[in-house]
Design a binder for these strands. Sequence first.
DNA 1: AAATAGCTCAACCGCGAACGT
DNA 2: AACGTTCGCGGTTGAGCTATT
Length: 326
Amino acid sequence: MGRSPCCDKLGLKKGPWTQEEDQKLLAYIEEHGYGSWRSLPEKAGLHRCGKSCRLRWTNYLRPDIKRGKFNLQEEQTIIQLHALLGNRWSAIATHLPKRTDNEIKNYWNTHLKKRLVKMGIDPVTHKPKNETPLSSLGLTKNAAILSHMAQWENARLEAEARLARESKILHYQTKPSSHHHHGFTHKTLLTTWTSKTNQGYADRQQQQLESPTSTVSFSEMKEPSSAKIELVGSSTCLNLIKEPENDWFNSTVHEFEATEMAGGVDEGFTGLMLAGDSLGRSFSAEKNETVKERSGGGDCSNYYEDNKNYLDSIFSLVDPSTPMMF
DNA sequence: AAATAGCTCAACCGCGAACGT
DNA sequence: AACGTTCGCGGTTGAGCTATT
């Protein structure tokens, strides 16, 4: 409830961070860990508000951030997940290791959205702009199914958030104390956390993830996010796993697949363009030049051989029985 | 070379959820 | 239950950079 007092307190600096400030923040976090952002600036000798420090850390200074151009695989993941989740950048970011929600949001707004608009696709609905309104009932069958899928994903995210909260507790329990843990590097700090929580986390995940997800992406586990990477593995393929016993989910997927087989797929979705030639410069032109150097190799590299459409991709995200290779 | 338009992205703002008392 | 504090999220801004005129 309520809002925290704003950072407009007298004397608190705003705007771009200097190298010196970065060093101070890094040095403090290396030694003491992070959290308690409100009190951190003063302890670290920074004339910033805690919010600003947290942002600088999560979006820039964190050691596990990958910077630079997004590769094709990442672009596709963003578009697909955006179609499913909308502007839930943090949720999308959980599927893109090393990328921050802010970065993804920026990239969407400055690149991907414009690209879709150019292609005549509504970046909000991911459907062609000239498409007639949905069926007389307001929704086509497929759109309704997608809506179900989104609900399913929402449930999954809630479960993940629940896990994240628990993991945070563990994190603070294992966080080095300022009294007796001097000289922690990022690596030791993060590794310590990971090793201490890995087993318990896996156990709880097994026991408690009762939402339709058995997704083991450890999403929302942002603190520290390198732990997520270790747990997920190096692949940036999405590892969503369908609960075999989830009848509703299975029936939904099967229903959709049946519809699709019958040629009933609504071709309005963005990904149809992704697989086709109309994708404009990046998804086709960049494909050849970049697939080797940008795909990151691994299990994802032969994605392009599968000329699958977008909805295939989306369902592959949630149905491992149709492996999606990026 | 200067002016201007367009673009990018780090950082800020405000809101609401979660949590503590 | 009510209230205060903290944190995280998504939307927005604007400084700095690049391209164009």
